[in-house]
Computed example of a mutant assay.
Amino acid sequence: MKKLFPILLIAFMGCKPAKKEMNVLNFRHQVDGKAVDLYILKNNNGMQAAITNYGGRLVSLLVPGKDSIVDVVVGFDSLEGYIHSTEPYFGATIGRYGNRIAKGKFVLDGKTYQLSVNNGPNTLHGGKFGFQHRVFDAVQHGDSSLTLTYVSKSGEQGFPGNLKVKVTYTLNSKNELHLDYEATTDQATVVNLTNHAFFNLNGSGTILNHNLQINAAQYTPVDSTLIPTGKIAAVNNTPFDFQIGTAIGGRINVNNYQLHNGKGYDHNYVLDNPGIDNIAVEVTGDKSGIIMQVYTTEPGLQFYSGNFMQSKNKLRTGPDDFRTAFCLETQHFPDSPNQPAFPSTILRPGKVYTSHSVYKFSK
């Protein structure tokens, strides 16, 4: 691992400083014989991203709000917190396959593959020991960019093929955090990479008063184990309609079978216009005034409203209380390997998997 620049915390003009600064020494350890560290990206506008190569995680994201600098990504202040958390996905790069695969099985080129099952009867986010527990190699490029690489060996968690993965985080002067993914394989496999940052644009407290707009007229309904039924349904006249900005909590408790299945929102949206120039999602923090816009080349986006947060983990801001963070996971659709009508997630030798998502902030 390449050792890099001294890490300096900068003073932000016009805003109060963040309540707590990340201590990089809390992340400098070894896991499975590999060095782990914390890497800082920053721009001249007061933004700062902290990323650890343990799980390729976005640990912290400082963003100027209307009154102060706000850490909009919830997480821990040490590596130990991530290793021992009962919620293994805080900020992690997710792979090989983000979201769920039914019964942990799929058939590819006539062969059935059995994966690690870790979510009831299903595989979630790559299995029990997915990328969230792996140590990536890291190379930082100045203050603005960090590249993480990992080789997932054939058979890892049951997936075929040796998969070479590269994830690049870039923070630019437009207050945009770019996440670029690439992968290649030596055998046909399935791939669906994403990031599992837990956001709170106020820094802490309930997220139910955040205003959310998702540019998607359709979503994929799920069964009681959160596997898509195969249907693509209209959001019109349902609690899933966020085509016009609406408070996250405005309809979350209505009597609805799909909300019952997810214990709230935990569903994949079919984006109207995927592409890096089109806004997929816009969220506004009701207290901070921070606006986050998400752009992605992916066809779908999983909106999760923190329904399984149970106050079991002590985060930087306190316990991970019920619905105090949300996730917006850019992705292909859940269970695509078993859903031939969904966009394919198959990657073959000689082809390059690419995915690009942007989180842009303003106030």
Score class of each variant (00 low, 15 high):
Asp77Ala: 06
Val73Ser: 01
Gln140Trp: 11
Val139Arg: 12
Ala102Thr: 09
Leu79Thr: 02
Lys111Pro: 02
Asp109Pro: 01
Val135Asp: 03
Gly127Val: 09
Asn122Met: 14
Phe129Asp: 14
Gln114Ala: 05
Gly91Lys: 00
Tyr97Lys: 10
Ser116Leu: 11
Ser144Lys: 14
Lys128Ile: 09
Leu79Cys: 02
Ala138Ser: 03
Tyr113Leu: 07
Phe131Gly: 00
His141Asn: 07
Gln140Val: 09
Val117Gln: 11
Val70Ser: 03
Phe106Leu: 05
Pro121Phe: 09
Gly142Met: 13
Ser85Ile: 05
Ser145Asn: 03
Gly110Arg: 07
Ser116Pro: 07
Gly110Ser: 05
Pro88Ile: 02
Phe131Arg: 00
Asp77Gly: 08
Asn119Ser: 15
Val139Trp: 05
Val70Met: 06
Ala138Gln: 00
Pro121Asp: 12
Gly98Met: 06
Thr93Gln: 11
Phe76Gly: 01
Gly95Pro: 07
Ala102Ile: 07
Gly142Val: 10
Asp109Gly: 02
Tyr97Arg: 11
Asp143Cys: 06
Ala92Gly: 05
Leu115Phe: 02
Thr149His: 02
Thr86Lys: 15
Asp137Val: 07
Gly75Ser: 02
Leu115Pro: 00
Thr93Trp: 11
Lys105Phe: 12
Thr86Ser: 15
Ile101Trp: 08
Gly142His: 11
Ser116Trp: 10
Gly91Tyr: 03
His125Arg: 09
Phe76His: 08
Tyr97Val: 13
Lys105Ile: 13
Asn119Met: 14
Gly142Pro: 11
Thr93Leu: 14
Gly142Lys: 14
Ser78Lys: 03
Val73Glu: 01
His125Gln: 10
His84Phe: 15
Ile83Ala: 10
Leu148Asp: 00
Asn119Lys: 15
Tyr113Asp: 03
Gly130Trp: 08
Phe129Tyr: 15
Val70Cys: 04
Val107Asp: 10
Thr112Asp: 13
Asp77Ile: 06
Lys103Pro: 08
Thr112His: 11
Tyr113His: 08
Thr112Ala: 14
Phe106Trp: 03
Gly75Thr: 01
Val139Leu: 09
Ser85Gln: 03
Asp143Ser: 08
Ile83Glu: 11
Glu80Cys: 13
Ile83Gln: 11
